[in-house]
Amino acid sequence: MKKTDWRFGLLTWVVAVAAIWAANQFGLWYGAMITSVLIGLFMRGASRAFVVAWLSALAGWGFELLWEALHEPIAGAASAVAGMMGLAANQGGVVIALTLILAFLLGTVGAWFGVALRRLLSSVFTLV
């Protein structure tokens, strides 16, 4: 990987994480998906796009939980929510996992759509 590619990837990731985090503050949970679509659409290399999209979605959702865990009872919140969902109260980890899996899924389908669209568009325009 070229140094500039690596830097571009890092920059994209930082911008994407910030965008996802900001969207979440306004209840726009689909921000992770839209951001990943854009990554897939504009970043060269499908595997690179997927990796950046996954890391962005996971960080966009996960860093916020980590940050809150520094001064909020996040583990307690996970246990309480698990109880409310009919799970055992000690299965708070399931709630955390569910949150991160959802972020991962949103990133995956977003990037997949972006990459697929880019490829399709490039084929169509090449044909023309």
């Binding site: 909020e72 307690g76 949150t99």
Partner: peptide
């Protein structure tokens, strides 16, 4: 959603 979902209970 960590911003406005169930996590705000904390």
């Amino acid at each position: 959603n960590p911003g406005t979902g169930v996590w705000t209970v904390a």
